[in-house]
Simulated assay, not measured.
Amino acid sequence: MTINYGVLLGFVASDDAEISLQSGQFEGAIRFRVDDLQKPIENPENINWESYARGAVYALQNFGYELKKGIIGYISGVKGLDSSGLSSSAAVGIAYLMALENVNGLVISPVDNIQLDKSIENKYLGLENGILDPSAILLSRHGYLTFMDCKTASHSYVYFSELSKSQQCQGQLPFKILLAFSGLQHNLPKKRGYNTRVFECKDAARALLCATGCEDASCILRNVDPAMYEAQKCILEENLARRAEHYFSEMKRVVKGRDAWARGNLHEFGQLISASGRSSILNYECGSKEMIQLYEILLKAPGVLGARFSGAGFRGCCLAIVESDHAEAAAAYVRAEYEKAQPELVSKIPADRRVLVCEPGDGARVI
């Protein structure tokens, strides 16, 4: 599911192979050519807003697509939500991919664009990101829950059973999405906590696979049978045990969440979101002090059914599902309580961007 806020890239085809870009959030201009050979970034400290445009060219080149035309463009996110943790890097990468594909007459499916964006993140930028963010951005449909299998890249759509499909298309859903901004801003590549968690999950998978005689399998927790995990989890070191517990409990929550949504049970759906948030803090050990404070404030707000970090919890936003009739009251409560808890951080956030009441959105597209 996406929201009705996002990244906009206005573009036209250039007369030649040159890319020329400006940003609403960052100073300066980018100029390079699509026929320049792009090489992966070796030092994550060198990643900046230019990197995602170059990464898009890199991914398309590596997948064998021919680029002859560049773009002249202006890219901008939502003012006040820079570095907010709202899948912003994936959204930017996808915007550049779709623009370059458009001007070069390339017809590329959403599924293939997911892999192209993954190439930007993994191979060009050196991050250990998976496909969840680009999949949500590219595959979401307004009013529907997207149910994904990140291993097989298969997906399906689940509609809310209390409403007919025609009603959902008109936006008549019984909930809103609250986004509460912490005021913490930094780039994921410069904070290696996320990659560390990924490596710990791989270590946990390796130990479990070896214990069950599956040493040759790829070291991801998805390759560990849940029954085998239950039988062998006692062998894991304490921190690896917590990472694995987060993973396997999250897998259960996803399936339960899909079923709750299909039954129209928003209360159960919200409880599962909150449980995911708690596990992120206790088992995955993500979340700064400020983000945890914000998460706990959201849980106490009127009409909130569930809350969690919007991403890894090192920066940016927390989100909540809230009953439509209580959305504005919940937003006011969160604004007031978080300002009491973190007055200095809140003072740096534009007043109209501290808490947003959002609607479900649609997938990425050229308009």
Rank of each mutant, 00 (worst) to 15 (best):
Q185A: 14
A29R: 07
Q232E: 11
I19Q: 02
L221K: 01
L116A: 15
C150T: 00
P189Q: 00
C210H: 09
P343R: 14
F248I: 10
D149H: 03
D362P: 02
D203C: 15
V346H: 05
K300F: 07
S288T: 15
I137S: 13
Q185W: 06
E344Y: 12
S51G: 02
S109M: 06
Y144R: 12
R335W: 05
G257I: 11
A211V: 07
A17D: 08
Y74K: 00
I131L: 10
F309M: 03
I72Q: 08
R206M: 06
F181C: 07
K39C: 15
L116W: 06
A217Q: 11
D15N: 13
P343Q: 11
Y157K: 01
Q25P: 00
S288K: 09
V78S: 06
D362W: 14
A307M: 01
I177W: 01
K79Y: 10
E215C: 12
A241N: 05
P189A: 10
E162G: 15
G93T: 06
G28R: 09
A262H: 13
F314D: 06
K165P: 06
I292Y: 11
L240V: 08
G183F: 02
S288V: 10
Q168M: 15
L299M: 10
K340V: 15
L266G: 02
E250D: 14
E285Y: 04
C150P: 01
N239Y: 07
L163Q: 14
